[in-house]
């Protein structure tokens, strides 16, 4: 040992230090935590699994999609928020959309065109159009107005590309009727798929719509697994649930109340309704 050059000795000490500290922090510590956690908080340490009729149906902390095989909302269940995790609420692929606040221009699908893998070209929806589409769909499902600022009546982002002689509603694929016939005296055209409008000036049009559908109903969460919706979104859905299930609306409102997690200590976070627990309670009602 003493005869080794000092730099070798130093690295040997480093390796030993790493091994000793790995034993401490990478084995003893996590195992000890696991032991105590399993003993004291067994249910929570194992994922807060909820059972129905003796079978696990999920975790009270992990959101689920309440849609049928075609992805259509199941009308007798409260609906969760949109999700960017895989095909929706996939815990093996957690994710946010990561789209920015000015992501407002779609790439329209070109009819008949194929992508590299031979699938039909589906284009890319901007975040704005996703928000507008969701808002319109939620409005239709709940029988309220799905209109929003910066959205067209057909549920895409109301965005113009303005050129000296004309303006183009870039998210409305032809033959759609543009949401406004003129912009500052210029004629407005529908968007031609595949055409490059990058040279135009981008002008989103706010319009005078007021949103009825709550914010959390039209946005994807950070994890893609958000188990909650806002109280406002739950209340928006209550009349539909009451109708579908033939239950009085007050009963539904009661269930929403009992499945709402209030702010911790009165000031932490936001009140939020646990969708899976609420739907389970409905099934029992």
């Amino acid at each position: 040992m003493e005869r080794l050059p000092s730099w070798v000795r130093q690295h040997l000490a480093a390796l030993r230090a790493l091994l000793v500290l790995t034993l401490l922090t990478g084995a003893i510590y996590p195992l000890l935590v696991t032991g105590v956690a399993q003993a004291l908080f067994n249910g929570k340490a194992n994922g807060s699994i909820i059972e129905k009729d003796g079978k696990p149906v999920g975790s009270s902390l992990i959101g689920q999609s309440f849609t049928d095989a075609d992805g259509k909302p199941i009308a007798r269940y409260f609906q969760s928020r949109p999700s960017a995790a895989g095909d929706g609420y996939d815990p093996t692929s957690t994710s946010a959309s990561n789209l920015g606040p000015e992501d407002i221009i779609d790439t329209l699908p070109v009819p008949g065109a194929k992508d590299d893998e031979g699938n039909p070209d589906e284009g890319t929806q901007s975040l704005l159009t996703q928000v507008c589409t969701r808002s319109k769909a939620v409005g239709e499902l709940e029988g309220v107005s799905g209109a929003r600022p910066y959205c067209t009546a057909d549920g895409v982002g109301a965005v113009l590309k303005v050129f000296p002689d004309r303006a183009v509603s870039v998210n409305q694929a032809c033959p759609a009727t543009p949401f406004t016939p003129t912009y500052k005296g210029l004629p407005v055209e529908c968007g031609k798929p595949g055409e490059d409008y990058a040279a135009g000036r981008t002008v989103p049009i706010r319009g005078n719509a007021r949103a009825v559908v709550p914010a959390d109903a039209v946005t994807a969460s950070g994890s893609g697994l958000d188990p909650h919706i806002s109280v406002a979104y739950a209340e928006l859905q209550a009349p539909r649930i009451a109708r579908e299930r033939g239950l009085p609306i007050d009963r539904i409102r009661n269930l929403i109340n009992t499945n709402t997690t209030p702010r911790a200590l009165g000031f932490m976070g936001e009140p939020a309704v646990n969708v899976l627990q609420l739907n389970l309670a409905l099934d029992k009602a």
Partner: peptide, 13 residues
Amino acid sequence: QAVGAAMEGKEAR
């Protein structure tokens, strides 16, 4: 502004 809050990518709780 369209959403009415900077809620994209944020958790409800």
